[in-house]
Every structure is written in structure tokens, then in C-alpha cells.
């Protein structure tokens, strides 16, 4: 039982680290602000949940698990709000997104 818990915890932590690294690479590689925001979204949702679930499996203490659940819920509730606020502020200040030429049908000026 203990071994199964340890293995699944290690697996979750590994997946979380890999997703985090992918997000970090994405934030460097993607061409403009709006696409980078999607890369940051990966690290905010699945990577954070995977790492926190991995930590939950490490510790049998009830209060620690509840606190980890609270951090997870907070992350999941806060991250869309922040992303939306950033996107709206950037759009209001006139930062044009880099759009694909083929898909650009509704006349938004592509920069």
C-alpha cells in the first residue's frame, strides 16, 4: 500500500515537473504576448494540480491534505481572473495580437 502511494506520488510529481518545464519553454519560445499567455495557463492548471496531488499522496495528515486542496482551489479560481485581466489590459492599451494570415477572416488588422 505504502509503495503504491509512493510510486503514484512520484509519478504525479514527475508529470507536474514535466508540464511545468513545458510551460517554461513555451513562455520563451512562443512569438507574442497572447500566445505566451496560453503557455502560462498550462503551468497554472494541470501542472499545479499534478504537483499538489503528488504532495497530497505523500502525507497522510488530514489537515495538510485540506490545506493543499485549499491552495489548489485558490490557484484554479485565481488564474483565469488574472489571465483575463492581463488580456483585457493588453487589448485596451492597443497591443495587437500576432494572427495567422489564413485564419484571419473578420478584418482584425494583423501586425
Amino acid at each position: 500500500m505504502d509503495i503504491a502511494l509512493n510510486i503514484s506520488s512520484a509519478l504525479c510529481l514527475f508529470l507536474g515537473s514535466f508540464l511545468c518545464l513545458s510551460g517554461g519553454v513555451g513562455i520563451i519560445r512562443f512569438p507574442d504576448f497572447y500566445t505566451r499567455m496560453h503557455a502560462a495557463g498550462v503551468t497554472d492548471t494541470l501542472a499545479a494540480s499534478m504537483i499538489l496531488i503528488g504532495l497530497m499522496l505523500q502525507n497522510p495528515d488530514a489537515i495538510v491534505i485540506l490545506k493543499l486542496v485549499m491552495i489548489l482551489l485558490m490557484t484554479l479560481f485565481i488564474s483565469p481572473t488574472t489571465s483575463h485581466a492581463m488580456a483585457k489590459a493588453a487589448m485596451n492599451s492597443g497591443l495587437q495580437p500576432l494572427l495567422d494570415k489564413k485564419e484571419n477572416k473578420d478584418g482584425v488588422e494583423s501586425s
Binding site: C20, G23, I27, F33, R36, M37, A40, T43, D44, A48, T75, S79, T82, M86, A89, A90, S93, L95
Partner: peptide, 13 residues
């Protein structure tokens, strides 16, 4: 805004 995004992501990490 890239910088603000970086700061936000740094905080969540």
C-alpha cells in the same frame, strides 16, 4: 505585459 505575465507566473511557481 510580457513582464507582468512573467511576474505572475513567477509568483504562482
Amino acid at each position: 505585459y510580457d513582464r507582468i505575465l512573467a511576474v505572475n507566473m513567477f509568483g504562482t511557481k
